[in-house]
Design a protein around this nucleic acid. Structure first.
Lengths: 259, 259
DNA sequence: CGCAAGTTTGACGTACATCAAGTAGTGTGG
DNA sequence: CCACACTACTTGATGTACGTCAAACTTGCG
């Protein structure tokens, strides 16, 4: 049985994790393991293509397990694999000599990463929480792209989406205030994780959030406190944050200075 | 006659402009118009592919002219074209409601832009200086990708390069100081424009630089003054800046706090 | 339960923004 | 060729958002 996952297109700042579209060419365990709220439909026009791709992918993928904070690949490593998160969470980041760190992206179950297509990784990837990762040799993926119609195009789409998301990240880092950055982060995560109003389960620490937003832990903590005081969010406990007023957050995230 | 341009791979922070690799499938006017210092070789393995692609590209491209500060496309416009800078310079940026602006990238002669492959542009593109631009309908490019072997792969490479560069930009914006940002900018431009020690011709204004680096004009001006005082650069006049000590700049740019 | 790691809160410092002149380029018309 | 205006850039004085340092509090795991 083939399942095709289609993510509803978010208006404005799309939140779709960089490589997520790729979920369209696998999908077996996703619905079983991860809390994905996107509509899941069966078969359809892409059935045959999808089936071929799925079978081929299953054949070439190998499963890996990583513990919290374990490195999946390091900056400078020769890159030849594409990875997909099955469970847990992953961050990609770069660290400067004096310890300053910038997190480039977070990846949750269903997301692909390591699609750099460069000969050497310019970032490292680490498990945020204990994670199960499937890796696919790049040349095999390439071969798949040459033999199975549509795969190439799909890869392009994934990359373009990733580029667009990274550009959003850029604007946020360059021109938004601490509170706006936090609102942006929460909105992005809320749209990625679910549409309803249960608390978000954020696997990453305050430090991870800070290094993603170009802030410090203290500023993140104070900012979350501020948003909580204004009743835009509720902090259930540590990593569980509930969105109470997503529209207000959204307008903050879009720089509408809606103090 | 077919010319293949090969850019020497920069170590560490690559400087290749996002879409520059695409120069490999055109090239006619580049050597005549722009000061490209990269080795230019003829023919080679890709000759036939390149020739096909070149001819096809020439057939589908149309030339446009823009004056300084004129808009090429705006955020929200339906996107269906891919563009290449022939002469002049282009910036892509996003502006928040209250006027804050983030420049995402600069494009110089030979660079491609607008390869978003999304249905709507999430950024606007404007001419920094009077510019001549060639535009290609995207569906034609896509068709080219389907019929001519290697084009698809080339497009992928361009996108990946663009993604990597945007990620570099991200780290800089999130974690570097004003001086480091300026050093990073100068190094990137120096590597893009030429290897020798003539002054850089920077078409963009201080405001453009500020909005690219997430700073203000005043900070950019003070930073350049500082670098000049330390003899790392010399400011010939406004837009002409000479690099005097690129190694020092490079170590600043890499966050080695070499003050 | 107890400890270590993670998070919050407070007091204070600073890098960069903001506000405000002043100066140097650049183009236009006499 | 110079006077004029206009825009771009530089420089200085001051403000502030966020970083830094430090201590208390909370959380979660053995």
């Amino acid at each position: 049985m083939i399942l095709i996952i289609i993510k509803p297109l978010a208006k404005g700042n799309a939140n779709m994790s960089a490589l997520q579209h790729a979920a369209q060419i696998d999908t077996t365990k996703i619905s079983a393991r991860s809390p994905l709220p996107w509509p899941v439909i069966e078969g359809g026009k892409a059935r045959t293509e999808g089936e071929d791709a799925l079978l081929a992918l299953q054949r070439i993928g190998s499963t890996l397990r990583f513990k919290r904070n374990e490195t999946i690949f390091a900056e400078g490593d020769r890159s030849g694999q594409v990875y997909k998160v099955t469970s847990g969470a992953v961050r990609t980041c770069r660290v400067l000599m004096d310890g300053r760190r910038q997190i480039v992206d977070f990846f949750l179950p269903g997301d692909f990463f390591g699609l750099d297509w460069q000969d050497v990784h310019s970032f490292s990837a680490e498990a945020i929480a204990d994670a199960v990762i499937v890796s696919y040799p790049r040349n095999q993926i390439e071969r798949l792209g040459e033999t199975i119609p549509g795969v190439q195009k799909r890869l392009m789409a994934i990359l373009c989406k990733g580029l667009a998301l990274t550009q959003d990240h850029l604007v946020m880092l360059g021109r938004q205030t601490a509170i706006e950055k936090l609102a942006w982060f929460l909105v992005r995560k809320a749209e990625r994780l679910h549409a309803d109003d249960r608390p978000l389960e954020l696997p990453m620490s305050r430090l991870d959030i800070a290094d993603y937003l170009g802030l410090t832990i203290e500023t993140v903590s104070r900012g979350l406190g501020e948003l909580k005081r204004h009743r835009h969010i509720a902090i259930a406990s540590g990593h569980r944050i509930a969105i109470r007023n997503i529209e207000e957050l959204r307008s903050l995230a879009n720089g509408e200075t809606g103090d």
